[in-house]
């Protein structure tokens, strides 16, 4: 069964290795450039001494902006790739058997078709996992200087590093396999699987992910110099996490409404030291965020969701193939 599976999927393995080689070839020079810039901007020193000081803020913003474009391209272009790879490979497992009629050859050998499918799933999943983890390592290496500044919760980091990429691919693979089983055609199965993948992947990224764990909050000196979101440059000391919201709170602990904050911003715009003025009003900055050290917790949760869905789908496929006719 190992040889048989290898023979059927070896072209895909070669393609996977080629993809790794291509990605490495592209990002090796970029990785070096990022490291050079990291040193020349003195970002390391800034991070070592917390993030204080105008010059450090400027340096970090300059550094991040230099590579934001390429990092964003990477995340934009690469985020559908796990879905495509998984869907194509998954849809082919049964879709091709049905299209070429070889299922009647394959399942009348002496290996029961449930076992046949289980072994193929396990071997192909192992291959996919190895390729995806390798890709994730390459991405992690390339991004690591930027991750030190902006944290690893940015989509460009979180979706490509750690376990998430592998989880996405396995999920898409499972969707493709089930679609191939039900539709008996490869190309329609790819389309359905990819659509299904995006339909789960998007809500998870934009809605569900920030709710995995109750966010933390902290109070700090007030400022209006802040950016929000998972790839924000940190304005407060400590390792950057995923900032969900900034709000000004008054001395009694009440959060100022949006309108009040807007009025304040108008007021302080022309001032020489707006932060000092805000301090004088007895205001604090309340940051609601997911701390940076939750990265792996979030990775495990994300991976568990997608890999768990994959397991359920694949188990369904095996059961259906075994018990229903073909």
């Amino acid at each position: 069964m190992i040889w048989f599976t290898w023979r059927l999927h070896r072209a895909q393995v070669y393609a996977g290795l080629a993809l790794i080689a291509l990605i490495t070839a592209i990002f090796l020079p970029y990785g070096h450039a990022v490291r050079g810039s990291f040193a020349s901007h003195g970002v390391g020193t800034c991070l070592a001494h917390d993030t204080g000081g105008e010059s450090c803020q400027t340096a970090m913003i300059a550094f991040v902006q230099q590579f934001n474009a390429i990092a964003n391209h990477l995340s934009t272009w690469f985020s559908p790739i796990p879905g495509l790879i998984g869907a194509v490979i998954g849809a082919g497992v049964l879709g091709r058997e049905y299209e070429q009629g070889t299922w009647r050859l394959a399942w009348t050998q002496s290996v029961p078709r449930g076992r046949w499918l289980t072994q193929r799933i396990l071997l192909v999943s192992a291959g996919l996992t190895a390729i995806c983890l390798t890709l994730s390592l390459v991405f992690t290496w390339f991004r690591s200087p930027m991750d030190q500044v902006t944290g690893r919760f940015a989509p460009g980091a979180f979706d490509l590093e750690g376990l998430s990429l592998t989880g996405y691919t396995l999920f898409a693979f499972a969707l493709g396999l089930v679609a191939g089983l039900l539709l008996r055609r490869t190309v329609p199965a790819i389309v359905v699987a990819f659509a299904g993948f995006m339909a789960v992947r998007m809500p998870v990224e934009f809605w569900l992910r920030q709710r995995y764990v109750t966010p933390a909050s902290k109070l700090s000196a007030p400022t209006l110099h802040h950016t929000m979101g998972p790839s924000a440059v940190p304005v407060t000391p400590g390792k950057p996490g995923w900032t969900l919201s900034y709000d000004l709170v008054n001395a009694s602990g009440h959060t100022l409404t949006g309108a009040e904050q807007g009025r304040l911003e108008e007021q302080v715009r022309t001032m020489h030291d707006p932060d000092a003025y805000l301090r004088g009003l007895g205001l604090h900055l309340k940051t609601v965020y997911q701390p940076a050290d939750r990265f792996w917790t979030f990775q495990f949760i994300e991976f568990s969701i997608f890999a768990g869905l994959a397991v359920v789908l694949l188990a369904f496929a095996v059961q259906r193939l075994r018990h229903r006719g073909v």
Binding site: R7, Q100, G101, T102, R104, L105, P112, R113, R115, R322
Partner: peptide
């Protein structure tokens, strides 16, 4: 039953005798 023993007892040549064409 679909067991390995049952499968081993029967040889099957399907319509249009499908083969893995790339092999």
């Amino acid at each position: 039953s679909g067991s390995a023993e049952a499968l081993a007892r029967v040889g099957f040549v399907a319509q249009e005798h499908p083969l893995y064409r790339g092999m």
